[in-house]
Nucleic acid binder design. Structure first.
Lengths: 258, 258
DNA sequence: TTCTATTTGGTAAATTTTACACAATAAAGT
DNA sequence: ACTTTATTGTGTAAAATTTACCAAATAGAA
């Protein structure tokens, strides 16, 4: 929080560059070792975690804003981003539970509670998918930390962000059946067992280890490479990669996956 | 437009009760005689049509606001309503093409262009389904007319509403495959041929006249009644109705329909 | 009674999904 | 060099679902 000046300026003058009353919150998902992960921002002053979020510049489209907000936490641009729902319950933020005096003092700003930030805000929910291993989470201007959490080990979140995660996850799961977006969660080369595990974890159900990869190959979505992975004292599995052409088409058209 | 006072008050003081910078626009669909219809608001001053829309009261949830806005045009509440996408391109409204002088004069308000309404606005898109025959379209506070249009005969719309219709229709079609929402477009009692026609028009593709209804019956979604409809010089078809229990469950769970 | 247009029961063929047996193989231990 | 262990991956048969379409039923008009 060394850039206090920048923060003060955002709180006092932000409304000139950002649209008030609207924010974006992003559920950024990653996958590692049979676990679905999500990126959460920690706020010491609020004593809790919430989804990474931000405001929309007056010059940006929603997608551009979401991209920027996601990039601020992951340092990666052009992640797979999907707008899934907009949240606008008038009581989604419990203003009376926030200690404005404390904030004013901490931020060095006289009347924080009168700022443009402190008013009813509707939030556009996006979810993003990324290869877990490529991300080094970064805390932002307001937040104190940013870290990966296993999806079934996240603490109760601030505001209505528990509901946001639930809805994002639901959309992700539905879309996973029709769009081969597992590609976004895997490295460029992977084994059949690995992609099988991604689908089992994300969908939360068993898929036949032989039939499932067979279908992916049959649809032409993935192609066998002439390389194997060494996995110790077992038969070395072949590596596969997504077929870009078929994959791109399936992303647009949709294909039923089991 | 006899309630000029009400309108003036909305333009001048509306921001006290409504959230600025955010609106809701609704694509209200109906079906009649092999045609999908959509409700459009006409604006003489703008010389064009757009989707019925409105602002969100500070006490309302988004769904409540959408319900109110839809009810203002249809006089019907509790229609099937789905939020499908939020639109926020900075240039979705071409401000420079609007003649504020003319508006000010017409509305009897000195500086219309300085009102809270004239600023970047993000719009939450909803689509609604309703039995065409139950609706008597009503013009609203700002609009001059409100009428049904065949979906393939709508004029170019104002703002980004062409894109909104396109996206709403896409969502409707996708959802029609998994949720038996044709129920919302049909009267309580209908023949197999009628429900078959609804699906063919909405999906824009041929469905086998025998297999399709057979599947609906097999899934238990619709049930045969002990009544027939007189259709002139042909064999009288049986009437069917949706099975409320199976139908409600399918709305939540989803079922694949061909 | 016959004709026309439409509804509907039934059934066979084609396709897709599901289940599962077993052969292949990599490396470590004996 | 052979055995053991754990995992990969080919093949195939059974089950279920989807698709195609024949032919009978039927209502009113000619």
């Amino acid at each position: 929080m060394e850039t206090t000046n920048e923060l003060q300026d955002f709180i006092i003058n932000g409304y000139k560059h950002y649209i008030p009353h609207i924010s974006i919150d992003a559920a950024i998902f990653g996958y590692h070792d049979h676990q679905l992960k999500i990126l959460l921002s920690g706020f010491k002053s609020l004593g809790g975690y919430c989804l990474p979020g931000g405001y929309i510049k007056r010059t940006e489209t929603l997608d551009e804003a979401a991209n920027r907000i996601v990039a601020e936490r992951t340092s990666l641009t052009d992640l797979y981003l999907q707008q899934y729902k907009t949240f606008g319950d008038p009581d989604r933020i419990k203003w009376n539970e926030l200690d404005f005096e404390k904030f004013s003092e901490k931020l060095g700003i006289p009347y924080f509670k009168d700022s443009w930030l402190i008013d009813q805000t509707i939030s556009v929910g996006y979810y993003a998918l990324t290869d877990f291993s490529l991300v080094t989470p970064k805390a932002g201007l307001m937040s104190d930390s940013c870290d990966w959490f296993n999806i079934d080990e996240i603490p109760p979140l601030l505001y209505d962000h528990d509901q946001m995660v639930k809805d994002a996850l639901h959309t992700l799961r539905v879309q996973l059946y029709y769009y081969p977006i597992a590609e976004k969660l895997l490295p460029a080369k992977f084994t059949l067992t690995e992609i099988h595990a991604v689908y089992e974890t994300l969908l939360g159900k068993k898929l036949d280890i032989r039939n499932f990869p067979k279908k992916l190959v049959f649809l032409g979505l993935i192609k066998k490479l002439n390389e194997k992975r060494n996995i110790g004292p077992h038969r070395a599995p072949f590596l596969y990669k997504f077929d870009l052409k078929k994959y791109t088409k399936a992303l647009e058209t949709g294909t039923t996956l089991t």
